[in-house]
Simulated assay, not measured.
Amino acid sequence: MANDDMSNDTQQSSVDFINNIIGLLPKPFHAKAAMILGSGLGTVTEQAELLAEISYQDIPGFPETGVAGHSGSMFLALVNGHPMIILNGRIHFYEQADAGAMAPVIATLKALGIETLIITNAAGSLLNAAPGSVMMIKDYINFTGQSPLFGVADNSRFVSMSKAYDSQYRYRLRQIAEKNDIHLAQGVYAWMAGPQFETPAEIRAIRMMGADAVGMSTVPETILARYHGMKVAALSIITNYGAGMDDVRLSHEQTLEYAPKAAAKVQILISGFMDFLYAEKHGSNN
């Protein structure tokens, strides 16, 4: 739960642990943006300059990942020369039956000074986006009935989600995609609990409710980031069609096969987005 993501002492220990490693870097490292990588997207880090890798297991209070394609590592990196914290791995609701499993991670990012969270995931397409393509998330539907804010005891739990995904960020990502001739779909993401894939009947219902892609993550992290006052951008990497939409048997291996095919597109989008973020912080949006 967000108000109990870790004790104050443990959270301070996690921040101190990471800051100690930052202090050992040859140059100052003041990241204002962080990115969570979805299943099979570890190759996105190949174009970044990795300064340090920290296992989740070594960070006080951090959860342990247990899904193939999620290494459970924090990277201190430079993307186009801009500092960024990259999280290769997340905890899903279905692993621990806890929507707040990523709360310690997001709270630590906030304490480290992160202002922008970029979230990526692997998702099933419910529209005309083929496997290997990218969809920018403009809104979400939570079909699980779960929230990482269950148990928060004060009025901070009543977070407005009317602008969950920052409109200016979406505009800039569209510009970057057009400049680089990348087809970037835009749509609504449906969060399902998993770990089983959806039935064809569920996919039909989800499509009727207005969703364009379906997956098992991202929404808890979005809620937590907004709870902490971060701006959010999110990208779905399309790895398959929803159940009943084609004849391919759904599997996690399919996710791991198609996600890397979109990695090059994600690298270009994130690289340009980081240029925009740091130009904005220095008073220019050019």
Rank of each mutant, 00 (worst) to 15 (best):
M6A: 15
S7R: 07
Q12F: 03
H30C: 00
K32A: 11
K32N: 08
M35Q: 01
M35G: 05
S39T: 15
L41H: 06
L41P: 11
T43V: 13
E46L: 04
L50D: 08
L51W: 12
L51E: 12
Y56A: 02
Q57A: 08
V67D: 04
G69D: 01
H70T: 08
F75E: 05
N88K: 12
N88E: 14
G89T: 00
H92Q: 01
H92I: 02
A99H: 02
G100E: 06
G113M: 13
A123D: 05
G124M: 05
N128T: 05
S133H: 06
M136I: 07
G145I: 00
V152I: 07
N155C: 05
S156L: 13
R157S: 03
Y165F: 15
D166S: 09
Y171V: 11
G187Y: 10
W191Q: 10
F197D: 02
T222V: 11
L224H: 04
A225M: 06
R226W: 02
R226T: 09
H228W: 01
K231H: 14
K231L: 14
V232T: 07
S236A: 09
N240V: 04
L250Y: 03
Q254G: 06
A259T: 08
A262H: 09
Q267K: 14
I268Q: 01
I270K: 04
F276T: 03
L277Q: 12
